[in-house]
């Protein structure tokens, strides 16, 4: 078996040298609350329409949250771009969010603060099963192909656009496992859009991939999914929007 891998490695090594596989991507994440509210099953059409009409201009003015991801062929770390307030406004504390992937070791460490706790999810990567589509488009200067998957826990349709010529399996939020770097994520027909605005290729330093030292409750993927599933069920029963407190 090992020989096979070695042969394969050698075979692809020459072409891979020419590729750019290390750097930092900047993303902008935008949440469209009216679409999110429209998906809440307990609301009447009248309430959904009211919110859609009301929030129209706010959503247009929403500049989104800047995120960044450091990546190389084996690892990636996705987190906030900055803790500073944009455009000099008041500073609000952000929920801790650091998503680390190691593709070589098939390991991930996700530090996620939610529901009044800080969780540290440690497990193997568990990349979703992707369906590859027939569309191409440009994101941040790269020609990307379309891939689709579903989140069975949040019951979401996820569309990813991955770069044809950046052979890295990393991606924003908790998405990864495509033949190219994911430069855009579109959750539930534009309810949340995470779009790359810039890809800078440069050698990473050790700090780029360093997780902050945070104390938290250690859980695995199954336990994490259970927390999310329970919370969504609970909030839906209580007629409350679960996504004020967890990421959509």
């Amino acid at each position: 078996m090992k020989k096979l891998v070695l042969v394969l490695c050698l075979m692809v090594s020459s072409m891979a040298m020419a590729q750019k596989t290390e750097g930092v991507v900047t993303y902008v994440r935008k949440d469209y609350w009216s679409k999110m509210i429209s998906r809440l099953t307990f609301l009447s059409q009248e309430q959904k329409d009211r919110q859609t009409q009301l929030r129209k201009n706010w959503e247009e003015n929403n500049k989104g949250t800047k995120m960044k991801m450091a990546f190389n062929a084996n690892e990636s770390l996705y987190t906030y771009f900055s803790t500073e307030p944009e455009e000099g406004g008041y500073s609000w504390r952000q929920y801790e969010l650091d998503l680390y992937r190691n593709f070589e070791k098939d390991k991930k460490t996700d530090i996620i603060e939610m529901l009044g706790k800080t969780y540290v999810v440690e497990d193997s990567i568990h990349a979703p099963v992707w369906k590859i589509g027939n569309q191409i488009k440009e994101v941040a200067g790269f020609i990307c192909m379309k891939a689709e998957t579903e989140d069975p826990v949040k019951n979401q349709k996820i569309t990813a656009w991955f770069a044809q010529d950046i052979p890295v399996s990393a991606g924003p939020e908790r998405m990864c496992g495509l033949p190219g770097l994911i430069l855009e994520l579109n959750i539930d027909d534009g309810t949340v859009i995470i779009e790359a605005t810039n890809v800078a290729f440069r050698p990473l330093t050790a700090d780029d991939l360093k997780l902050p030292k945070v104390k938290g409750k250690k859980i695995d993927d199954a336990a994490y999914d259970k927390v999310i599933r329970q919370y969504i069920a609970q909030q839906t029963v209580a007629h409350e929007n679960p996504y004020w407190e967890i990421r959509y």
């Binding site: 078996m1 096979l4 891998v5 891979a16 590729q19 070589e104 399996s169």
Partner: peptide, 20 residues
């Protein structure tokens, strides 16, 4: 070289899955 390991890993995964 790192990206190679990734590819190798993926191949390894696929291969090891079916090797049994």
């Amino acid at each position: 070289m790192r990206n190679l390991s990734l590819l190798a890993l993926l191949c390894l995964l696929t291969a090891s899955l079916y090797a049994q």
